[in-house]
Design a protein around this nucleic acid. Sequence first.
DNA 1: CATTCGTGAAGACGAAT
DNA 2: ATTCGATTTCACGAATG
Length: 326
Amino acid sequence: MSDTRVRTSSSEQRETENALSRTAEEEEVCPECEGRLHTDHERGETVCADCGLVVEENEIDRGPEWRAFDSGEKDEKSRVGAPTTKMMHDKGLSTNIGWQDRDAYGNTLSTRQRRKMQRLRTWDERFRTRDHKERNLKQALGEIDRMASALGLPDDVRETASVIYRRALEEDLLPGRSIEGVATSALYAAARQTGVPRSIDELAAVSRVEEMEFKRTYRYIVRKLGLEVAPADPEDYVARFGGQVDLSEEAKQNARELLRTAKAQELHSGKSPVGLAAGAIYAGALLANERITQHDVADVTGVSEVTIRNRYQELLQAAGEAQATA
DNA sequence: CATTCGTGAAGACGAAT
DNA sequence: ATTCGATTTCACGAATG
């Protein structure tokens, strides 16, 4: 009881804090190197253009989607009630039918009305009480939200993840598997489907389940749900990882170019996309005469230096051959 | 000294059986 | 369920700047 009260007040407080800091934050510079900040809406990240420091990974606009120029307009445009969203376990709409056989004024109901209410309650239960499922969903969606925030994934990814989780739930794929694991898998799949992939390592870092269980669950979910998840595109990693190692645009372009020629030669089948991206980043930097070490790249990508070596040499060779034939 | 490069053993994974 | 082949990782030492 008091629990509810505390939660509401603290969340309200957070809202106002957010609103206050928003205006102050508007024109910040990078705390690390004073560089210009660049906001990547597609990836939901704010990164420093100079040093690549990720300043704000969790970019969520909690404000209204409209602007009001005077109070009258504000009244006109304001919406009533919370927005419905798949990210809430009951889509933000929930109703309870009371158990007392009384009407709104406290009078007892007639027998006929009582029967009617009984029938309504039965149906209400049938829809809502999937109780295990609802509670399950509530917790899972909370987890998805938490992890998505930690990874700076935009809202549409969360929505997609929610949908996937719902399907898993509907098809009774949960028994024997942890909610956390399925939630993590759903988010991972969603990120890839949306073209904003995060590596398994990154997911595992913010998830509460062990990496092994996560992977096992992910496979299972994908298979059972017939999810169509295209192999992650290494190019999708270049911008993010490249930013984290302080890479010039030229170097990133080189990296992308290398990946493209490699793909044309089918050089990438079976290889880890992250490894390919890591190799391309290192090779791209080399071609642009920029000094970064294999160690640095290995650090941000979570790929071993050995793999980077192998990949970047293959990539350079593939690029050389492409030039020879062209 | 840091970085790069190569190697062999060992683990993990997908596919085939 | 086991086996096989490819890939990745780890640990190490050598060469290079």
